[in-house]
Design a binder for these strands. Structure first.
Lengths: 164, 164
DNA sequence: CAGTATCCTGTCCGATACTG
DNA sequence: CAGTATCGGACAGGATACTG
């Protein structure tokens, strides 16, 4: 029966996972951020079976994260480029990368983000543009928004106090 | 043959995905951040089959993101709490949430982070603690770190110019 | 080069029944 | 309450062969 469809769910995390929840999807996006656009570039880099690559690329295109563009008439050739929506995913990827480096790289990072102006590695944190406070500040709380449905309201109505 | 094991890979994104790549894992963490600790709390909230919940919880414990703690002797009762490593994942989750709200919530967010001091919804962005610049600034570039292996170096040695 | 077409396997996941 | 046990289905993913 496989996973239930969560398309109707309003939780933004679940909705995001609908689009990028498959394992390869994020790695394909990672390579796309690195400038790759062509089928065989992805295939070589990822060492992925070609049919799987086709499936994932198609899914990413359908989700609006990438766009398939013809860059040659004869022979017909296509490339896959990030859309605005896909490019916006960069922050999530960098957050994931930073977390991985902090937690699973005892011998130092294998890939890191550096400031090309100074040469210093970046130390990323999420902040609120409005107040300037870090997102992990205790001042912030997740609450149901205007489009919340019953399920969401129930989950966020628990008396349990949120973990730090 | 299922997915190859990527445990030996040094890419921090792949390494992160090893731990939280399964669909339910992140949703369990989401609920844990919301203060849930007990088996049946997760089960009711997620509407997940009990055997799957056991599997995912066990995996999260093995990955060091959660800890199984006995909170009652007779009868023996356990609870699942976030470890430091698990709590550190909060930034990734919030980044995912913010992306989902930006991209897939035309009718407004269903869940949002608000500043309890001001009542204003947060507008999250990743910034570098060192320079204060946003992570999406063009000044930043991903480069191989001290622990990079051949595969990583090759991927990051392409002449292709990174996508914006 | 850029895929499509088959076939196969592992496992994620759901459903249900059961237990101390 | 907090799970374990068992069953079965759907699909992610791999391997390989083939095409314009």
């Amino acid at each position: 029966m496989q996973r239930k469809s969560f398309e109707d769910l309003t939780c933004p995390i679940a909705r995001s996972l609908e689009r990028v929840g498959e394992w390869w999807s994020i790695l394909i996006l990672r390579d796309a951020f690195h400038g790759m656009t062509r089928f065989d570039q992805f295939q070589k880099s990822l060492d992925i079976a070609p049919n799987m690559l086709t499936r994932r690329l198609t899914a990413l295109v359908e989700a609006g994260l990438m766009e398939k563009r013809q860059y040659s008439e004869r022979p017909p050739r296509y490339e896959y480029v990030l859309t605005d929506r896909g490019r916006d995913f960069r922050e999530v990827m960098l957050a994931l990368l930073a977390w991985g480096n902090r937690q699973f790289a005892p011998e130092g990072p294998s890939v890191q983000l550096v400031d090309t102006q100074t040469g210093l590695p970046a130390d990323l944190m999420l902040v609120d543009r409005v107040s300037g406070k870090p997102a992990i500040s205790r001042d912030f709380r997740l609450v149901p928004g205007p489009a919340a449905d019953e399920g969401v309201r129930q989950r966020y109505a628990t008396k349990a106090k949120p973990a730090a």
